[in-house]
Every structure is written in C-alpha cells, then in structure tokens.
Simulated scan of single mutants.
Amino acid sequence: MYDHKEWYLTLWNRNTELYVFEDMQQLFEEKMRECLYENGDSPCPKYELSTRLFATSAMTTVKWWYEYGLQFSVNEVVDFIIDNITNGMYRAFL
C-alpha cells in the first residue's frame, strides 16, 4: 500500500463520489469478525464494538502515517497497529 500512498489518499478523500476509506474499514471489520467467530460463535456486542474500534484505529493510523508520519518505517507502523490491537483485545476481554 505504501508504494501507492498518493493514490490511496486520493481515494480516501471524503469529497470523492465513493468513500473508499470507509469501504476498506468495513473490509477490515469483516476480516476481524472471521477471526473472532471462526468457531461459529454467536455475535457478541463486545466483539462487535471491538471490531469497529480496532478497524477504525488501524485505518486512521495508516491514513495519518501517509499524511504526516513518514519518519516511521512500514514495520514500525505495522508493529504499532498490531501491538495496539493485540493489547486492546486482551484488555477488552478480561
């Protein structure tokens, strides 16, 4: 994605006809649901809130990085997102 950051920033602009950022966030949520409900569990309000929270956070972090934080490497940003999702999920379900 980083190699095409300008393209993504253009697509994620709210002034475009289709707001791709939101679509990508929804895809992220769906992938998280697949992981959380892989055993056919029933939807849980806490899990649903967590999927929204973490998908939003991850997408917002990437967008911020593209716009302002390029002093961070790709691996640093990925580690930051994964660490926050992992620790947040752990704390959320204690």
Rank of each mutant, 00 (worst) to 15 (best):
E6Y: 13
W7R: 15
Y8D: 04
Y8R: 11
Y8A: 06
Y8I: 00
Y8S: 04
L9P: 02
L9R: 10
L9F: 00
T10A: 09
T10L: 09
T10E: 15
W12Y: 09
W12I: 03
N13L: 03
R14Q: 13
N15G: 12
T16M: 10
T16C: 07
L18R: 10
L18M: 11
L18C: 09
F21E: 02
F21M: 02
E22H: 11
E22D: 08
E22Q: 04
M24F: 13
Q25D: 01
Q25S: 08
L27M: 10
F28P: 00
E30P: 00
E30N: 05
K31M: 10
K31R: 13
K31N: 10
K31W: 08
M32N: 06
M32R: 05
E34T: 08
C35V: 12
C35Q: 13
C35F: 13
L36C: 01
L36P: 00
L36D: 01
L36K: 02
E38H: 10
E38W: 05
E38V: 06
E38Y: 13
N39C: 05
N39S: 12
N39D: 14
G40N: 03
D41H: 07
D41E: 15
S42Q: 11
S42T: 10
S42V: 07
P43M: 00
P43A: 06
C44A: 06
P45G: 06
K46G: 03
K46V: 10
K46F: 05
Y47T: 04
E48Q: 03
T51R: 05
R52E: 12
L53G: 01
A55F: 01
A55S: 09
A55Q: 01
A55Y: 03
T56L: 08
S57K: 12
A58L: 01
T60E: 15
T61V: 12
T61E: 13
V62N: 03
V62K: 01
V62H: 02
K63R: 15
W65D: 04
W65H: 07
Y68W: 07
Y68F: 11
G69L: 05
Q71H: 15
Q71T: 11
F72P: 00
F72N: 12
F72E: 04
S73H: 04
S73L: 01
V74M: 11
V74W: 09
N75E: 14
E76G: 02
E76C: 04
D79C: 06
D79T: 04
D79H: 04
F80V: 02
F80M: 14
I81F: 00
I82A: 04
I82G: 04
I82M: 08
N84F: 07
I85D: 01
T86L: 14
T86N: 12
N87D: 13
N87I: 09
G88E: 10
Y90R: 14
R91C: 08
R91K: 13
